[in-house]
């Protein structure tokens, strides 16, 4: 991913800043600039999510996506945030540990890098929330 393309959504990735429609009170992460429910009538504003949520489904990836070869096996999941929206993220735990319904919280990690010379991409992943 190119530098400007990543940088544009950097705050969203670092700090889980998504959006909310003031009209229907629906929350969006990844952020949306148009409310799919209210469309032109919607009123979108930024919203910072707590990052608390639970695992809806998951997989353990053994054949990695390009750029993720050094991480296998890695756990990928769909996480439903407490405020409502769902997102896709790696879950940092041992493969045996992850369960549907497991509570998670956010951590700051490297998402990837553009090769040895390129930019390092940071953002949010999730870990089991044992508290």
């Amino acid at each position: 991913m190119s530098v400007p393309r990543f940088w544009r959504k950097q705050i969203a990735r670092y700090n889980l800043v998504g959006t909310r429609c003031k009209k229907c009170n629906e929350y969006f992460y990844p952020p949306r600039n148009m409310c799919p429910g209210c469309r032109r009538e919607g009123e979108i504003e930024d919203f910072k999510f707590t990052g608390k949520g639970e695992v809806i489904t998951f997989t353990v990836i053994h054949t990695a996506a390009e750029g993720f070869e050094n991480q296998t096996p890695y756990v990928l999941g769909i996480i439903k945030l407490n405020e409502g929206p769902s997102l896709t993220s790696q879950i940092i735990c041992e493969p045996e540990e992850v369960k549907i319904g497991m509570k998670v919280k956010p951590v700051f990690r490297k998402l990837g890098q553009a090769g040895e010379r390129g930019m390092i991409y940071y953002g949010t992943k999730f870990v089991p929330d044992l508290c």
Partner: peptide, 16 residues
């Protein structure tokens, strides 16, 4: 460190 941790991610976690 984990495979996806470096001095920056550690600094962020400590700072937070």
């Amino acid at each position: 460190p984990d495979v996806d941790e470096d001095a920056a991610t550690i600094a962020v976690e400590a700072a937070r």
